[in-house]
């Protein structure tokens, strides 16, 4: 799963590159998109990672409440799998155990970030993402005031994308969480990135907002790799949840163009 995620760029992303290539008017931008398509081809055919930052493995595991996990801890099982996949697949070990002393972790590219959601049914669905550090570093969260309203939300999202510029490796997939509380909002932004490119929100008003923001972001001029152009985002995804009467949390989780996601259903 980890290897596939790093070697095989999803068809949704490749198609997004191709359709961006048709619309892009910057010569450098076109050149970059072509090289990214070529890069994905090389990675797939030669079984090498598309990017040297093979990421932190982030999991969202949907556990059916009628499903019974036997034989040990699911956290350990996932980390074992990641360790094996990364080490044997010649993927990079990019985890430090201690954020301050920067001591390297002993388990190859683990521990992973694992979110578990309890859902109805008896299935176990494991969603995995190899999340790069550059785009994660440019992500942000702000507790807006309810009075900032929809305009404040749009301005905040655009300002984060504008600040990130070339650093987050555009063209980006922009994941947004609105509502919940401080930590839930960040999780919503991350979760939104697990939706395939082109997949709009089921809520009509949110789907409309996604489309509007996509257009506005692409008018910022940042372009592929920040070198100018009209392809700054491949997609914008928004997840919302109820929140406190005094609150309007907004989180923007940026994903570089190497939007690497895989899913296993058991």
């Amino acid at each position: 799963m980890c290897r596939e995620a790093n070697f095989e760029l999803g068809q949704d992303v490749v198609e997004a590159f191709q359709s961006a290539l048709k619309k892009e008017t910057s010569e450098t931008g076109k050149d970059i998109l072509e090289q990214l398509i070529l890069n994905a081809d090389i990675a797939r055919s030669e079984r090498v990672p598309m990017c040297q930052d093979t990421g932190v493995s982030v999991f969202i595991v949907e556990v059916g409440q009628d499903c019974h996990i036997a034989g040990g801890s699911i956290y350990d099982a996932i980390n074992e799998g990641v360790k094996k996949g990364y080490e044997e697949g010649y993927l990079r070990h990019s985890i430090v155990d201690h954020p301050i002393t920067r001591e390297k972790s002993k388990g190859y590219n683990t521990p992973s970030i694992i979110h578990i959601e309890l859902v109805p049914g008896d299935e176990l669905v494991i969603h995995m993402s190899a999340k790069g550090g550059g785009s994660e570093n440019m992500s942000a969260l702000k507790m807006l005031k309810p009075a900032d309203g929809l305009e404040g939300i749009k301005d905040y999202i655009l300002s984060i994308v504008a600040q990130a510029g070339p650093n987050a490796c555009p063209p980006l997939v922009v994941g947004v969480g609105i509502g919940g509380n401080f930590e839930r909002c960040a999780y919503l932004a991350k979760k939104s990135l697990f939706r395939p490119i082109g997949h709009r929100s089921d809520r009509p008003e949110i789907s409309e907002l996604e489309t509007e923001l996509m257009e506005k972001i692409n008018q910022l001029g940042i372009g592929p790799q920040g070198m100018g152009g009209n392809t700054t985002a491949l997609d914008v995804k928004i997840e919302i949840e109820p929140c406190h009467i005094a609150a309007l949390p907004v989180a923007v989780n940026l994903n570089c163009h190497a939007s690497r996601h895989k899913e296993v259903r058991i």
Binding site: Q35, L36, N39, A43, V48, M50, C51, Q225
Partner: peptide, 11 residues
Amino acid sequence: AAIGGSGALIA
């Protein structure tokens, strides 16, 4: 600047 995320090609 090299193209971020084109590590397989740059190699």
